[in-house]
Design a protein around this nucleic acid. Structure first.
Length: 99
DNA sequence: ACGGTGACGCTCA
DNA sequence: TTGAGCGCCACCG
């Protein structure tokens, strides 16, 4: 089980209408400071349609990166019931507690 | 084994 | 409040 696989495993648990952050995800894996590495894993995204990488956002609730386009990402989230304002998400309400 | 790269995160100006 | 800088970790050539 390589690092990126763990990322996918945890991310896969995030339900619709909820989101998580790279930092939280990294922390859940056991590497609180590996947020960057997580992003790297998402970028590779070997498990493309299987993993909801669009539910992963920045620690401040701002969308970052995403090769497919931020706009599209926002669209998908809103579609799932996540309230997005100016490319921002209310972490207090939509941040999923990873365990 | 080494160095470069990147979908991050925090601090300081 | 926004922008720039520095430190992190894992993957790839």
């Amino acid at each position: 089980m390589s690092f990126n696989e763990k990322c996918y495993a945890v991310l896969r648990k995030v339900p619709c209408g909820k989101v998580t952050t790279y930092g939280a995800l990294a922390k859940a894996i056991g590497k609180p400071l590996a947020a960057r590495a997580v992003g790297n894993a998402m970028n590779k995204n070997l498990y493309a349609p299987q993993v909801p990488c669009h539910r992963v956002i920045g620690s401040d609730g701002k969308m970052v990166g995403f090769a497919s386009g931020i706009s599209k990402k926002i669209k998908m989230l809103k579609k799932e019931g996540v309230e997005v304002k100016n490319g921002r998400v209310d972490l207090d309400k939509f941040l999923f507690e990873l365990k």
